[in-house]
Amino acid sequence: MNYVSVAGRTADAARQASRPLVSLRNVSKQFATGTLAIRGASLDLAPGEFASLLGPSGCGKSTLLRIIAGLTEPSAGTVEWPSACPDASPGATGGARPDIGFVFQDPTLMPWANALRNVMLPLTLARVPKPEAESRALEMLELVGLKGFEKAYPRELSGGMKMRVSIARALVTRPRILLMDEPFAALDEITRHRLNDDLLALWWRHRLTVLFVTHSVFESVYLSQRIVVMAARPGRVMADLANDAPYPRDDLFRTSAEYAHLCRVASETLKRAIMQ
C-alpha cells in the first residue's frame, strides 16, 4: 500500500496520535459465488475522522462497509475496535453492532411508518421506553431540519427529505461511527450540495466519525479529511490521500485552487486505480 502525500504530510502521521476507533487488518472477502470482492485491505479509522472511500463500481466499497458493520463476515483478516466497550462485542447476531449508524444508498424507510416511527426504530428495537424514544427521535428530526414532519409518511417526502430521515435514524442511537454507502448518489446536485453541507455541520458539531462511500471525486474532496482510494478486481486499498483543507468548507472552497488541486490528485489516483 503506497501513501500519497498531498498536503505535505502523510495521512498516516495524522492518525498516529490517537488509538484508532476501528482497525481493519488484511481483510479479504470471497463470496460463495467465487467472486473475490476484497483482497488484503487494511485500514485504520481515527475517532472523529471524516474519511471517504473512493473507487470504481464493483471494487468492494459496499462490501467493506458491510464488513465493518458486521453485516458480512470477512473470509480472512480481522476487524478490531480497540476502544470498544465490552457490551458492544460481536454477539450472537453474526457480529452486528448497534453502536454503528448505517445509511444506505436508498433511504430504506419503512413505508408503513411515519417519519417519527422510522427514526424511532433503532430505539424501539433496543426496547427504549416509548416516551424517551419519541423525544430523542424528535430531537434528531429537528437536527436534520425536519421539524414538523414527524407525522409525514415516506411517500409524502421528497428524496432529499427521505435521506434526512434516514440520517436521523442512523444518528438516533448516538453511534460511535456513521457508515454511509453512497447516500446522496440518487439526488440532484443542488440537494446533494445542501445535504453535504448539513452533514459536515453535523459531523463538526457532534464530533462524529464518518466513513463515506462515494464514487464522486468532488464529493470526497469537498467532504473529507482523508480519501481512501480503492482499486477493483480484486478490490484493494490503493492509496490514502490526506486533505488538510480547513473547515468549515463552503462554496468558496469549491472554487479555490486547493480544491482544484486536490480534485486533480484524487482523480489521477482514481484513474490509475481503474487502469490497473
Partner: peptide
C-alpha cells in the same frame, strides 16, 4: 440488514 444491525 438494518434490523440485523440493531440486533432485532
Amino acid at each position: 440488514d438494518l434490523f440485523r444491525l440493531y440486533r432485532a
